[in-house]
């Protein structure tokens, strides 16, 4: 089975039913997407498939079709971090950090579809990713900052 992750094509020999998360982590050693719950409750595994946010624990690799996968490792440009990543660093969001690749991937996909979000929309978009350390106040601030930066161009 072939799949493209962060622009690189890979060949894997796994059951088509295997969730993309476990192909990334245990077959390809791409460990930015995290295992937290396995049932789409925590969002720590979030990646992009063709630019849209997807919980990698819910997508069977056999159903990926030709979808191009981007993980947190592939979000930045070679010479600069993604606006969302930079906002996360500026706001010192992470504590343990385990959920943050999911938070960042969700925020990046959200702002791509909805570049001028309201507070209410941020609350709706970012509440599906669980953080047990309680970094939410800074996530909220960082999404706002990233949105403002994106609007500046």
């Amino acid at each position: 089975m072939r799949l493209t992750v962060n622009g690189t094509e890979h060949e894997v020999d796994v059951e088509p039913d295997m969730p993309l998360l476990w192909v990334l982590r245990d077959e390809l050693n791409i460990t930015g997407p995290k295992y937290g719950c396995g049932i789409a409750q925590c969002g720590a595994c979030t990646v992009h498939v063709d630019g849209l946010a997807v919980r990698a624990c819910q997508l069977a690799v056999g159903d990926l079709a030709d979808g191009a996968v981007t993980t947190i490792e592939g979000l930045a440009q070679p010479d600069s971090l993604h606006v969302v990543q930079q906002a996360w660093i500026d706001h010192q969001v992470a504590q343990c950090g385990y959920c943050q690749s999911g938070q960042i991937m969700q925020a990046a996909a959200f702002l791509d579809l909805n570049p001028e979000p309201t507070d209410e929309e941020i609350d709706a978009a970012m509440s599906a990713i669980l953080c047990r350390c309680g970094t939410y106040p800074r996530i909220r601030a960082a999404v706002h900052a990233a949105a403002a930066k994106l609007q500046e161009g």
Binding site: Q58, Q106, N114, E121, A125, A128
Partner: peptide
């Protein structure tokens, strides 16, 4: 689409 796509989890 305005928030989290249903398809993000309901793949």
């Amino acid at each position: 689409a305005e928030h989290v796509l249903c398809s993000t989890c309901h793949t």
